[in-house]
Simulated scan of single mutants.
Amino acid sequence: MTNIGVILGSTRPGRVGHQVGEWVAKQGSQHDGINVEVVDIKDYDLPVFDEPQSPLSGSYAHAHTRQWSAKVAEFDGYVFVTPEYNRSIPSALKNAIDYLYGEWNNKAAGFVSYGSNVGGARAVEHLRLITAGLQLAGVRTQVSLSLATDFAAFAAFTPGDRHNTMLRQLFTEVTAWADALAPLRRA
């Protein structure tokens, strides 16, 4: 089985990301051969990066980092669910990503975004650069959701069939890359 973590990238009160994350997980669980789990960074209560050593060392002084490390290490790939804040990703997501290094390496990454202008596309462009630096293989297909058209009254998520189709393709790509990179993770 291939383990895929759906990383919720917003900790904001009143966020809609949890609706998107649950939809992503539900769609992913319909694929054969994969386990999908929603991972909400809010549950880890990570302060602004506070480790005395670089994440490259893999040596963590704080319990919150060790807990986060153990969770991220469980997965073969990820689907990041991110809103677009000020034309980029939320600071909480960047902070959570920056806590670790080796746990991300040689795994696959897919991207689902939401926002008011271009469906969070600019956030994904930044996230692609960040994840590439962590040796994550970003897949081509991405899902971009508009707060104006994919959320009733900007609050209740109502995905269309075209989004379901794109998400199925995204999971196919993430799974293929995660499986292809498995020998590198074992090394």
Rank of each mutant, 00 (worst) to 15 (best):
V124E: 11
A182W: 15
R186L: 08
P47T: 13
G138N: 09
V24E: 02
D98Q: 14
G77H: 14
K26N: 11
F157S: 04
T172Y: 10
I4K: 09
L129R: 12
Y78Q: 00
M166G: 10
T11L: 02
R140L: 00
D98K: 13
G77M: 10
Q30V: 00
N3T: 01
W23Y: 05
V36H: 09
N106I: 00
A155Q: 06
A109R: 06
A109P: 11
Q30M: 07
R122E: 00
V81L: 06
G21N: 05
D150S: 11
A152M: 01
D45Y: 07
V16D: 08
N117Q: 07
A153L: 08
F111T: 06
F49Y: 15
K107H: 12
N117H: 09
I34D: 01
A123V: 12
D43E: 13
S59K: 09
A176E: 10
A70H: 07
K107N: 09
S144F: 11
A187S: 12
A108I: 00
A63S: 14
P83H: 02
Q142A: 03
R185L: 03
I4N: 06
L8Q: 08
P90W: 04
L46S: 09
A92H: 15
E173V: 13
R87I: 02
L134F: 15
A123C: 13
E125F: 02
A155M: 02
L93Q: 11
L134S: 15
T2D: 01
H126P: 02
V36I: 12
T65I: 06
G102Y: 15
F151I: 01
D45F: 07
L145S: 02
E22W: 00
N106V: 00
T141E: 14
G77A: 11
P90F: 06
E37C: 05
T131L: 15
E103K: 06
V124R: 07
E84Y: 03
L145K: 03
Y44M: 06
A25N: 11
I41F: 12
D45M: 04
V112D: 08
G120F: 08
H31C: 03
A176W: 14
T175C: 02
H31W: 07
G77P: 15
T172E: 14
N164Y: 12
M166E: 14
Q27F: 06
S10T: 12
H18C: 00
T82E: 05
L8T: 00
L136N: 03
F80V: 04
R66K: 10
V118I: 10
F154P: 05
I97R: 13
A70G: 03
G115A: 08
M166V: 01
Q135H: 09
L127R: 08
A25V: 03
R122D: 00
I4D: 04
A132V: 10
V48C: 09
D40L: 01
A92S: 15
K42C: 11
V6C: 10
Y101E: 09
F151E: 04
T2R: 02
D76G: 04
T158E: 11
Q30Y: 07
K107S: 07
V124Q: 15
S29K: 15
A108Y: 04
Y85T: 11
T141I: 03
Q67P: 07
A153C: 07
T82V: 10
E51L: 05
R87M: 11
I130M: 13
V36A: 03
G21Q: 04
A25L: 07
G33V: 01
H163I: 01
Y85I: 10
G160V: 08
I41P: 14
N106D: 05
H64A: 02
N164I: 01
L145N: 03
P13M: 06
